[in-house]
Structures are given as C-alpha cells and as structure tokens.
C-alpha cells in the first residue's frame, strides 16, 4: 500500500533518516520501533507531507506519489482547539476534510463513543484531563474516517485505563484500516504490531513479524543474572563469557546484568551456577524469560532502547 524507497532527510549535520526503504502492506499494523531521536517521527512527517525528503520517493496505492487515499495523522503532542468542545472540533475536522454536516456529526458521535468521551462531548477541550486530551487527539486523526492511520507514539501520556481503551480501538480499526505507529515502547509494539521495523540513527535495522524478530535472537530462553561485581569491573566479563561459551554463544553483559540467550534454562542451570561459583560471581537477582523486542534491539545495536 505504501512503498518507501531510499528516503533521506538531513537537518544540518544530523542525518535524521538515512536511505530508508520499506513497504507497508494493506490492512496491517506496522510498528516503527526505535529510541528517541531514531528518525521515526521524521519518517512519518515525510509520509504525511509535512516534511519534504532530501532524497528518495514515497509511493502510495497504485504507485502514485501523492496519496489518493485518506490519511489520518495523530501527532505525538496533543494538538486540538482548546476553545472548541470535543464534539465541535471533531465535526469541524471532518467538515474540512469534505464530509457533509450530517456525516461529520454522525462520525463525531461514533468516535466519542469509541473513545469513551461521550459524556465530555460538550466540554471545551482545554478542560479535559490529560488522558482524555490524548484520546481526543487520536479521535481527531480519525474524524474523516481515513484509509491509513499514522499514529506517532499513541500511548504516550496515557493512563493505564486509557491505554487499554486505545489499544482495543487500534486493534478494532486494524480490521478496516492500514495502521502505521511509531513507538519506543516495545510492549506497545509487541502487543499491537503485525510487523515491526526497528530503526536507529535513521536506518532500518530489521523489519519482520514480532515472532520472527524474537526468533532472530534465538528460539530458546533467556537467563538474566544481576551482579554488582560486573558493573564495578571486579570480575572480568570476558573470562565469564569464555567460561560460559560451552553453554551458549550469545552472552551479553550490559552494566550489572549478564544475559545468556538461546538456552534451555532448566537443564543448564546447574552448570551455569557452578561456573559462576568458580569465578566467585555472586548474583543478587536471577530472571528467566522469553526473548523480547528489546533483546532484538540489543542484539542489533549493542545497547538498550533507553540508552
């Protein structure tokens, strides 16, 4: 549905998007995952036509370079008209996108209901709570019933209750729309996205389904051991890695945490404990879990999403 080819955007010395190419399929939820400053927002702003790419092309349905379909954009910041009520601004937004008055009003009522804002229909937007403002921000992107919905960090600033509501809405919308969302929250990406594009420093590192991305860092389990001695360099990380190499080839040390991937934890646990004892490494915490997108990101970049 959307083909991005060799997209490039530079701000001064900063290369925000660097030769980005990917396809967005019709009816899917594609997540853009990356840390702050990775180039996610710049990419979607170019998609929306708010920024002109320095190089590269964006092809929409039927290879058109301008979207002949309706695009809805929900920005990261809450952007609305504070002196208009929720209902008034949804109707206005729909009308300036060429919906008739009756269609616009019907759409506004529907969206208010879907986003749990019916009771606030006549309240001025400036008087809404933070979570409600966020929901209104999303509703405004949907006012004209677009075919493609672009959501920039949709869960930012949402309380847990609103987060569930918004996730349910995005899943429901995905039945009829193509959705592109950016996030630096791997949980959000894992729960919502059909496919995830991992982006860092403006470059696409990997694009695949969540399951395939997890598999790419090993199908087994992951054991995490926290030990202060690792952070203080009291014990050589390299020695530990070498000692554990018979159990797994995928061992990472990040700060005070030792990660051993792609193993059957239950059968390897005794051997791991013995080696750690030999090296006098005392762990304060030990976790066993499945690989996450964060692990994929660490695997690809050598650092966490928050770094």
């Amino acid at each position: 549905m959307i083909s991005i080819r060799h997209l490039k955007k530079q701000f001064g010395d900063l290369l925000a998007v660097d030769d980005l190419s990917l396809d967005v399929h019709e009816g899917e939820i594609l997540g853009f995952l990356g840390p702050n400053g990775a180039g996610k927002t710049t990419t979607i702003r170019m998609l929306c036509g708010l920024l002109r790419p320095d190089d590269g092309k964006i092809y929409w349905k039927d290879d058109q370079q301008t979207p002949a379909i309706e695009v809805g954009f929900c920005p990261q910041e809450n952007i609305f008209w504070p002196k208009l009520s929720c209902f008034e601004q949804l109707v206005f937004m729909a009308q300036i996108n060429q919906l008739s008055k009756s269609d616009a009003e019907g759409r506004a009522h529907q969206l208010l209901e879907d986003l749990g804002l019916t009771e606030k229909a006549d309240v001025l937007a400036e008087k809404l709570s933070g979570g409600m403002k966020r929901r209104l921000n999303i509703a405004l992107a949907l006012a004209h019933d677009p075919d493609i919905l672009i959501l920039d960090e949709p869960e930012t600033g949402l309380d847990p209750q609103s987060r569930v509501l918004v996730r349910d809405l995005i899943r429901a919308l995905a039945k009829t729309k193509t959705i592109l969302l950016t996030t630096h929250n791997m949980d959000e990406a894992e729960r919502l996205a059909d496919r995830v594009a991992i982006i860092d420093h403006g470059r696409l590192l990997k694009l695949d389904t969540v399951e395939n991305l997890r598999k790419s860092v090993g199908e087994g389990e992951l054991l995490e051991i926290k030990a202060e001695a690792l952070a203080k360099d009291d014990i050589s990380g390299q020695q530990i890695k070498t000692a554990l190499s018979g159990i797994s080839q995928e061992i990472t040390i990040i700060n005070d945490t030792l990660q051993i991937r792609n193993i059957d934890v239950l059968s390897s646990l005794n051997e791991i404990t013995r080696i750690l004892d030999e090296h006098q490494l005392v762990g304060s915490e030990m976790h066993m879990r499945k690989s996450t997108l964060e692990d994929v990101f660490i695997h690809l970049t050598g650092r966490t999403l928050r770094e």
Binding site: L50, I79, F80, M93, I96, N97, H144
Partner: peptide, 13 residues
Amino acid sequence: DQQTILRLKLSKM
C-alpha cells in the same frame, strides 16, 4: 501557537 495549523495543513482546506 497551539500547533493546530498542522491539522489544517493536513486537511483538504
């Protein structure tokens, strides 16, 4: 000031 110009720019107006 309130950035709503972005919504206006993205509309068909």
